Simulated assay, not measured.
Amino acid sequence: MQNLNKVAVVIPYYNASKHIVKVLSKLPNIVYKVYIVDDCSLEALPKEALSAFSNVEYIKHEKNLGVGGATKTGFVKAIDDNIDIVIKVDADDQMDTSYIKDLIAPLVSGKASYAKGNRFRDFKALKKMPFTRKIGNLGLSFLTKAATGYWNNFDPTNGFFAIKTETLKRLDFDEISNRYYFETSLISQLYFQDAVIKDVAMPAIYADEKSSMNVWKMPFVFFPKLIKTFINRLFKAYFVYDFNISSIYILIGTPLFLFGFIYGIYNWWFYSSQAVFAPTGTIMLVTLTIIVGFQLLLQAVHYDITKAPKVN
């Protein structure tokens, strides 16, 4: 692997002075270069960090861009340096870098162009995961499946991943979020490249470093973005880049279902306010419209799942 591929690690650095040296010292020797991107950290990078690994490049942002923005800065440097594979590792020592070989293996063999950790395939590790994180990740994983089109993907918010730079070159970085939505928006862009994803089972490590993202705020932060990603994906996949039978299902099923639902609510309110029963014909029309629209949308979902990019 080391002889055939130049492997680099990107580490977004922000207030992790207690951990960064340890993270660097544990990197395997197959890593050719490390990019530390200082995202305007309040804690200065320890001097010994630059010598904790043999080939380190330190990059400092002029303003805070978030974990995604810092990682994208590393991506650009890796592309400029003709790196073959880039791995994103957090600076808080909550990722087991001994799994780097497992992450890059499917990329080196050509079986995938993106590989990421999956904390839900290791039952022992799953039991150790904090309950709130477990529930949050389960809910987000399901919603992200629909939004990104990778219906077989799990633990999509896992930030420990490897990607080929040849794949990165085809992505629109402006469409990839700078902050907490970074991993999800990256996967959503991979969808349009029909990129194969490899899930690598690995445990999560929960040290004394606390996330700045409150788990109870996650639904309010992610849900609007997931809806936007979902609509954007459907529009591009079925009305811009292609037009197929599922496009027709969506075109007919969506207005039918919405019309039946809204018309049904209106009639329920109208006839209830009049204290009379709704006509049988009205009830049948509303019911039939909702059922037909719903069935067409189910067909669209089935088609979308069957055409989803492969996840190993």
Rank of each mutant, 00 (worst) to 15 (best):
K169L: 02
A237T: 10
Y271P: 09
T280K: 01
P224D: 05
L4V: 01
Q193E: 09
V86T: 11
A112K: 06
L258N: 14
L50C: 12
F154H: 10
Q2G: 07
T167M: 07
L103T: 10
L107W: 09
I231S: 14
V301A: 12
N29E: 13
A105R: 11
T282D: 13
Y249N: 15
T148N: 09
D80F: 00
L50A: 11
I283S: 14
S211Q: 03
F277S: 13
A195H: 05
L138V: 07
N312G: 11
F131M: 07
W269H: 09
T132Y: 07
D122V: 14
D90C: 05
Q295F: 07
F192M: 04
T144F: 00
I59Q: 07
L45C: 12
Y58N: 14
Y181W: 05
L24N: 15
P130Y: 14
V292K: 05
T184N: 11
D92S: 05
I20C: 13
P46A: 14
Q94T: 06
G139C: 07
H19F: 12
R233H: 02
N152V: 00
N137H: 05
Q295D: 13
M202T: 08
S185R: 00
L296C: 04
R119F: 09
F173V: 06
K33Y: 01
A91I: 01
F223N: 11
V286M: 08
T287D: 14
V67N: 11
S185V: 02
D155S: 10
A49C: 06
F161G: 03
A78Y: 06
L50D: 02
V196K: 14
N15Y: 02
N244F: 01
S25A: 14
K225M: 02
N5H: 12
K111E: 11
I291T: 14
P219W: 00
K307F: 01
K26W: 05
S51E: 15
M202C: 12
L226V: 04
V37N: 09
V86L: 11
H19K: 00
Q94I: 03
R233D: 04
L288E: 15
L171I: 06
D80Q: 15
Y303N: 08
Y206V: 04
H19W: 03
P203A: 15
Q193A: 01
M202Q: 05
S109P: 06
K77Y: 03
I87E: 09
I20K: 00
G253R: 05
N5P: 02
F154L: 10
N118K: 10
L226H: 08
A16Q: 10
T229D: 02
N5F: 13
R179M: 11
G139M: 12
I283W: 00
I250L: 07
I83M: 02
K63E: 13
A78T: 09
N118I: 11
L288N: 13
D102R: 13
K111W: 04
